[in-house]
Amino acid sequence: MAQSRPRPLSPHLTIWRWGPHMLISILHRVTGDGLAIVGGLGLTWWLFAAASGPADYATFQYYVWRADEADLAGLIANYVSRIVLIGLSWAFFQHLFSGLRHLVMDMGAGYELKTNRTWSLVVMAAAVIATIALWAYIFTRGAH
């Protein structure tokens, strides 16, 4: 079908050697897109349920967090939603830290090979640590 005149293309995935800098770039895209679709829809569902009143909000809460002990489908939904929530929080921290790295590099800093490699690793570790800290706090505090 219709295609415009060929644009100049930058070299793609296949020519790069794997390393932390490559992984972090891919993760920035994957986490951004995940947050945009899953997070965006989740945020909308949450706010709409809250605005719709106590009954609708209770339904939202039931499937997302606390189904009845006897309701297997509800419990499965709870597990899936917890995995999604933990995943979204990791995606946020990963995207936040790699986004900050983007902003630093936009100013022209951090391109030296060793520096770049070090900060890529720091960013990925920080995202995992922040996620663990957040959920450790939530679960030890007994969220409801």
Partner: peptide, 8 residues
């Protein structure tokens, strides 16, 4: 709390 009253 994360009940409707608290969140809303």
């Amino acid at each position: 709390s994360h009940d409707h009253g608290a969140v809303a």
